[in-house]
Design a protein around this nucleic acid. Structure first.
Length: 296
DNA sequence: AGTTGCCTATATACCCCATT
DNA sequence: AATGGGGTATATAGGCAACT
């Protein structure tokens, strides 16, 4: 059943190729691949989840309305901010789009999206492995976290559970632990609370939730793995330079790094993306807000 | 030679829709 | 409501070529 579907996909892909060859437009083929590679960055730099179309549509809407920002909803504000990030990431996009046929245009967007999603997939799978190593090295759980298997993670595993545990709950209390695991009333973990892995030393100051936030070693590992290189992530080690890296980056590439970081954050959690109560999109959005909105 | 980014292939899950 | 087709998204593994 799904086999025939797959074969059809394959056929479609081959026909596309054939057409490109027959029409002698190898250049066109190159073009589409070019767009895939250009799209790779957007999930990292622009937005983890929004479709490129949505961003463009929001901008169009504004242009039609004579740029008047009044009455824009919060969501629309966010879209616009990301549209601007998009124009920085792909400066050629606007003028290229204007002299394209609709078909060509939507082809291009499709390829951009493919590149974007592919990269996100690469990153999550990378992290799936690395996170296991980092957690094992730092927390030395028994049993160790299996790099190839996510089913044994989440709250089942003591180390993972500790990291995922909401800051306002105490993972060391075995009663609380079992309640979280049973998803008892009031102990269901959702995207509404900050997990411990965001904080320096994995503990938050409940009187000041901003203290040490986004400074955990695990996060810096993840950040480096994604935005620098996998091997450089190993070198974070224990010299406390993690915070500095974030700080420097924040100064150096202000607007982008925000989104960079959020991606790293969400990705760390993605080891348990199968689980039900936790919705990643609002979680990510909250983190974006944290950086983009003035304090308060 | 090891690292890295990019690409391809495959299985699976999910969503939409028409038909039964 | 259930089924099945068609399409798309996601997870994951593995390969390849460029670079250091």
């Amino acid at each position: 059943m799904s086999k025939s579907a797959r074969q059809k996909q394959r056929i479609a892909a081959l026909e596309e190729k054939l057409q490109a060859l027959e029409s002698g437009h190898e250049a066109k083929q190159r073009d589409t691949n070019y767009y895939v590679s250009k799209g790779r960055a957007v999930r990292r730099i622009v937005s983890l989840f929004d479709s490129i179309e949505d961003l463009i549509i929001e901008n169009d809407r504004r242009c039609e309305n004579d740029d008047s920002d009044e009455g824009a909803t919060l969501d629309q504000e966010c879209l616009q901010i990301r549209f601007i990030a998009l124009t920085h990431a792909l400066p050629w996009l606007d003028c290229k789009a204007s002299d394209m046929e609709y078909n060509e245009y939507s082809q291009m967007l499709k390829k951009l999206r493919q590149g974007a999603d592919a990269t996100r997939g690469d990153d999550t799978s990378k992290l799936k492995n690395f996170v296991a190593g980092w957690v094992n090295r730092e927390l030395k759980p028994t049993p160790l976290v299996d790099p190839d298997d996510k089913n044994c993670r989440s709250f089942i595993n003591d180390a993972c559970g500790k990291l995922l545990c909401p800051t306002e709950l105490d993972w060391n209390d075995s009663n609380i632990r079992t309640r979280i695991r049973d998803r008892a009333d009031g102990y269901v973990v959702t995207e509404m609370s900050w997990p411990a892995f965001l904080y320096e030393n994995y503990t938050a100051n409940l009187d000041n939730l901003e203290e040490g936030i986004f400074k955990s070693k695990l996060l810096v590992h993840a950040f480096k793995a994604i935005f620098m290189s996998p091997s450089s992530a190993k070198e974070v080690s224990c010299d406390g330079n993690g915070a500095n890296i974030i700080k420097n980056n924040r100064c150096a590439r202000n607007s982008k790094v925000k989104t960079h970081l959020q991606f790293a954050l969400s990705s760390v959690t993605s080891w348990r993306s199968i689980d039900g109560d936790f919705d990643y999109i609002p979680f990510w959005q909250t983190i974006v807000d944290f950086f983009e909105r003035p304090p308060g």
